[in-house]
Computed example of a mutant assay.
Amino acid sequence: MTVTFARHGAPGPDAERFAERLGERLAKRIDDLEESADMIDFAFTTALLSLRARCVVDPRAAAVETWEAAVNAMQLGSALFAVTGASEGTVECRINRKLRTLPAIGPQSSADAGNWLTAFWLAVVCRDQQRMTQLCEVPLERLRSPEGQYDEYIYHWVDVLQTYWLRRPGLVDKLIAAIEASDPAVARVAPRDLLQGVLYPPINLFYHFVRKDEEGFSPALVEALKLHKAYWTLDEDRKADIDGSIALGPLAIACLAYDGEIPIEVESEYLPKHLLQRGWLGEFPT
């Protein structure tokens, strides 16, 4: 039996125009990258905002503009790690329907584990296996923040995902290490509510996915959405923040499960239907 889980909030009267303006601003920032890629992290942030704005007004991702926003975000996330992975020369990247030559900029603090996870989720949602592989080949040490802004668990988690996708040995032990390190009693940097409501649920979902737990996956997905909603409705500021419009980590794991033919017995605007069910795949080159 399919469970329907309601998303919080509703589009405001200016939501459509806001999404359009973001798309226009993003297109300009993407064009500017060919002159200098120093602001690629800013463009990536704008692309994420644009995707979420599109999902506010198009919660099923039924419009091609929403798919295009997802693809642009994925392309910029991957490009961020491409241009920071080289210190000289140029890098060829397809972004916003165009193959672009971007100048390499070398290591940057923005090319960290947090942005890596977001970029990887987007590649999973867009089913871009080549970009998933490229991201998984980024050395783990390159993702470490010198300022210590992340708990150690996040590096275990990245290692789990890279190990899974590249079929390296040791997946079970690494997953156990990630689960143990994400315990609120162990983690020291991430706020407890963020850890429990947003950061940990994808790890738990992945645990059910790799075990091919068909009976347990959908209940775990519902629980992830409950925690996501609880976090993003804790106060008025969070309720108004469009970052909560989709549950990107759970969506990505649900995409892996969907493609692995695990039944997804959950419907929610936090999991846009046509992104989950790859309805736009092949619409245009990614």
Rank of each mutant, 00 (worst) to 15 (best):
Cys136Tyr: 00
Arg97Ser: 11
Thr4His: 14
Ile264Thr: 09
Thr46Tyr: 08
His274Glu: 15
Phe5Ala: 02
Glu152Cys: 00
His208Gly: 05
Gly282Lys: 04
Arg29Trp: 07
Pro13Val: 07
Asp243Phe: 12
Gly85Ala: 05
Pro103Ile: 00
Ser87Glu: 15
Leu99Asn: 14
Ala10His: 14
Asp151Gln: 03
Thr2Leu: 13
Trp121Lys: 02
Phe209Leu: 12
Asp183Glu: 13
Val158Pro: 00
Ile40Thr: 07
Arg131Thr: 08
Asp237Cys: 06
Ile176Met: 10
Asp58Arg: 09
Gln196Pro: 00
Arg144Asn: 02
Leu76Ala: 01
Met132Lys: 12
Met39Gly: 12
Trp121Glu: 11
Met132Phe: 03
Pro263Lys: 13
Val189Ala: 03
Glu141Trp: 08
Leu135Ile: 01
Ile246Asn: 10
Pro219Val: 00
Gly77Phe: 02
Phe44Gly: 08
Phe81Ala: 08
Gly106Val: 01
Leu227His: 12
Trp67Tyr: 15
Arg167Ala: 11
Ala254Asn: 11
Phe18Trp: 10
Gln162Lys: 13
Val186Lys: 07
Gly279His: 05
Asp41His: 14
Lys273Cys: 08
Ala252Glu: 05
Gly170Arg: 06
Cys55Thr: 10
Thr90Glu: 15
Ala240Thr: 14
Glu35Thr: 15
Gly244Cys: 04
Ser36Lys: 13
Ala63Lys: 14
Lys229Val: 02
Val91Asp: 10
Asp237Phe: 09
Asn204Arg: 14
Ile105Thr: 10
Glu92Ile: 07
Leu161Gln: 13
Val222Gln: 10
Glu215Trp: 11
Val125Met: 07
Cys136Phe: 00
Ile264Met: 03
Glu152Thr: 05
Ala70Glu: 06
His228Val: 08
Ala10Leu: 10
Pro285His: 05
Leu135Lys: 01
Glu265Tyr: 07
Gly148Lys: 02
Glu261Val: 08
Gln108Tyr: 06
Val266Tyr: 09
His208Leu: 06
Ile253Trp: 10
Val138Arg: 04
Gly282Glu: 07
Gly244Asp: 04
Glu65Ala: 14
Ser218Ile: 00
Ala257His: 01
Ala224Gly: 09
Leu225Asn: 01
Glu88Asn: 09
Gly260Pro: 01
Ile203Cys: 02
Glu214Gly: 12
Ile154Trp: 01
Gly148Phe: 02
Tyr270Ile: 13
Pro272Asp: 00
Asn72Tyr: 08
Gly244Arg: 05
Leu281Phe: 06
Glu215Ser: 15
Glu147Trp: 01
Lys273Thr: 11
Asp31Ile: 09
Lys98Arg: 15
Met74Trp: 04
Arg168Gln: 13
Ala10Trp: 12
His156Asn: 08
His228Trp: 15
Glu152Lys: 06
Asp159Arg: 13
Arg100Ala: 09
Lys174Arg: 15
Ala113Glu: 05
Gly197Trp: 09
Thr133Gln: 12
Arg127Tyr: 08
Leu175Phe: 03
Val56Thr: 08
His208Phe: 07
Arg131Lys: 14
Leu49Ala: 11
Glu20Pro: 10
Ala111Phe: 05
Ala10Asn: 09
Glu24Phe: 13
Gly279Asp: 07
Val138Phe: 02
Pro272Ala: 01
Leu99Met: 11
Thr90His: 13
Ser78Arg: 11
Ala123Leu: 03
Ala19Phe: 04
Ala190Gly: 02
Asp38Val: 10
